[in-house]
Write a protein that binds this DNA or RNA. Structure first.
Length: 287
DNA sequence: GGAGATGTTTCAAG
DNA sequence: GCTTGAAACATCTC
């Protein structure tokens, strides 16, 4: 479920773990989320370390852990744990004695709280990067980064002229962090049918609107403090509740008989680029 | 009981 | 060699 802004919200939920020493790691080692990094590796590398960093990159959550500092000892190396939430993953806080339920794959214990990673569908995954490798160095430029220029985008899409707008926006190597609902939102704001081939589209407009939507989504969680008692995690799309209803397609797309917030035409639904897609037949006509 | 779900990877086909 | 699309993954909700 999580896209760009929800991933940022998840990061904030674990934020109270920063500066705290991990005294134990509990895991269900056989679940699929450990298909890249075995649970025992994570256990071996994180116990006794302190969380010193947390950030997001697209849909990826990256938490840095270093040896707990004592006195004047020099800065030690940082090991990064990366979490991808897949479709149904979530992070939440629990009390130090939290008893993991069957879908809580991963519990980092500190003296005062437990940091829990839960994912019932197990499409998510965790990676432990070798010490001092910065995972984001190898990741595509983020949509809101200054290096996400038109020239950069042109270079990446040079051979993709036949691909649909929807498929393009969902390509994480080009638009990291954009997911299904954001892709529909961007298409709607561009007044283009999501199945339109890239050769018929204006890449500068795609760049501009995708940045708008990313910025807008992040802005609406900016004022939210990370929940101190965040034991319930977050619900999908919870942050968009504050968006004026008339301004976002998102608010309407799943309602039965949902209508376009601009022209009030009944939204259409179908599968484009293998994903459920909603669009307005009047504002986004097939060409 | 059946369909569908806000994601990614793999593989086959074009 | 590149792009595209379907299937698979595992479980819950409607």
């Amino acid at each position: 479920m999580p896209e760009l802004a929800e991933v940022e919200l998840a990061r904030r939920i674990w934020e109270p773990g920063k500066g705290q020493e991990i005294i134990a790691v509990e895991s269900h080692p056989k679940t699929r989320v450990y298909r890249d990094t075995p649970a025992r590796d994570i256990q071996g590398h994180l116990v006794g370390k302190t969380m010193v960093d947390s950030r997001t990159h697209g849909k990826r959550l990256i938490f840095g852990f270093a040896d707990s500092l004592s006195g004047s000892s020099p800065r030690t190396s940082v090991t990064y744990l990366e979490v991808h939430l897949g479709m149904s993953g979530r992070l939440f806080l629990a009390d130090p004695e939290h008893h993991p339920d069957k879908h809580d794959h991963f519990v980092l214990r500190t003296k005062s709280i437990s940091l829990v990673y839960s994912d019932y569908r197990q499409f998510g995954r965790v990676y432990l990067h070798p010490p001092d490798t910065k995972p984001w160095d190898a990741l595509p430029v983020e949509v809101l980064h200054t290096r996400f220029t038109l020239a950069y985008l042109r270079r990446l899409t040079a051979r993709r002229k036949g691909t649909s707008l929807k498929a393009l926006l969902l390509d994480q190597s080009i638009f990291p962090g954009i997911g299904n609902w954001m892709a529909d939102e961007i298409s709607w704001r561009l007044y283009r049918y999501p199945g339109t081939a890239l050769r018929e589209l204006d890449l500068a407009a795609i760049r501009q609107v995708s940045r708008q939507v990313c910025r807008g989504a992040l802005r609406h969680i900016a004022d939210k403090n990370s929940p101190r008692d965040g034991t319930r995690g977050f619900s999908p799309g919870s942050y968009v509740e504050q968006v004026p209803p008339s301004c976002w397609l998102f608010q309407h797309r799943w309602k039965a008989g949902g209508s376009c917030p601009r022209c009030h035409s009944t939204l259409q639904r179908g599968t484009i680029a293998t994903r459920t897609t909603a669009w307005c037949p009047y504002c986004q006509p097939k060409t």
